[in-house]
Amino acid sequence: MEKSSIIEINNLIKRFPVGGGFFTALDDINLSFSKGEFTGIVGPSGSGKTTLLNILGSLDVPTEGEATVLDKKISTLSHKQAAQLRNGHIGFIFQTYNLLPVYTVYENVEFPLLLLKMPAREREKAVQEAIEWVGLTDKIKSKPAQLSGGESQRVAIARAMVKKPELVLADEPTANLDSENSHHILRTMEKLNNDLNTTFIFATHDEKVMSYLKRIIRLEDGQVVKDDWMELKEAAS
């Protein structure tokens, strides 16, 4: 498996204006991710996990330093270029699901493919497949308001994975799933990771996720305090 770099983060600082001053959410982050990684970012609430994923997803820009994603420097992207990067290469699973409320499950999952202008036949097949991965075939016509939290989360996962992106950024993807569903979805992700060499980066607290991760990065107060490769750890112990 090739180990070319997909993400480079150099001296990244993110500050938010708060009151009169600033709050430093990410403090001098230096990280590198290779293609095909299955990595978790863990850490207490407020440690900066979502902030980091947002920057990697080109939804936000660094205050200082640089993040390079798929050879694109995030801080230099125009809005249009950022949209193209997200649309073409990145699947985003939001902590808050962010399903489109007026669309059915099917239409929510279909949406990224419409943006990609995928032909109807191919699109339908991909949508059906993605909905099968998350086990929601019987809810295809439901609207988000009719779904449970876990079901909504699974729709969000299907929507992020339907276009088989090179990079999936998943913010607490299993927070509302029971153990059976969590394992099922993680195995599906693992399969995509193996078959298509898709890179997964999770922000998570979930112990169930940990056991699948190949690398765990620990954030505290916006700083990387630990960066462990599981294989190495197992080998060491």
Partner: peptide, 16 residues
């Protein structure tokens, strides 16, 4: 706005 943010996050351009 949440819906619109989602549209943009999923890769729609402002123009779209």
């Amino acid at each position: 706005q949440k819906e619109i943010g989602t549209f943009i996050a999923l890769g729609m351009t402002r123009k779209q």
